[in-house]
Design a protein around this nucleic acid. Sequence first.
DNA 1: AATGTGATATCGTATCGCGATATCAATGCC
DNA 2: GGCATTGATATCGCGATACGATATCACATT
Lengths: 122, 122
Amino acid sequence: MPDTVVAKQGSADFLELHILHHASEEQIYGLWMIEELAHHGYRVGPSHLYPKFHRLERQGYLEREDRLVEGKVRKYYRATAEGAHYLETRKRMVLELVKEAFSIAELEQVVASKKRKGRSAR
Amino acid sequence: MPDTVVAKQGSADFLELHILHHASEEQIYGLWMIEELAHHGYRVGPSHLYPKFHRLERQGYLEREDRLVEGKVRKYYRATAEGAHYLETRKRMVLELVKEAFSIAELEQVVASKKRKGRSAR
DNA sequence: AATGTGATATCGTATCGCGATATCAATGCC
DNA sequence: GGCATTGATATCGCGATACGATATCACATT
């Protein structure tokens, strides 16, 4: 069995986090996100992604900017301040889960050390 | 704003992972799980949890054992081998997300070192 | 004006989220 | 026995979501 399972509605809210995460670092658009997710084992179709974009925008977490690129209209999204804040809250919760599920008590320290210095250790 | 947001359907699949995680370590039952989740900031009601239990059981990821405890009937669940396997797959995906969202390239090493030795570094 | 192409949008239905509410099964009390 | 109590599980109901399939869009090239 492939490990890109996606067992039905499995990837649900991880999807939201992925979107917000990328949208807080750079401007993203639909097809790009779909490909990016594919690299990470998430099979997401347009009919799944676009409605999410719309909802996140409606909620004020994303803001859109239509732009013409190479003869194609792209709708770029970036996270708003509110969206970034929401993302941080959710990230904290994921961290809790990971800490517990992987029994990594000092995970916070690892994260904190990353934040202090910009190095990515690769 | 409290940081137990739970912004609508937010906790969705994290819930599944939490359930599977605990059910793979010990036998769990509904109310206990509800309280456990509350400790971690997830507000989950019975009408959310029980259907999930039922579905996970139907999918073969959990198995049930009714037991009488202190005059009360409890339905204990534990993860099946298949459920444990599914959990591992999902955990790997969460790890990917965390690694990326927190820019922790060496996260795998941290996890691996935890697995080798049982120490919890606290 | 027709076609190609990157991209976004919608349709339709099975399923889910989840507050509110009901139901259950064992025990203690009269 | 009848009945309230209490820990616990189950269901109702409907607005919202998942997501494959399909349609539509806008610009460029011919």
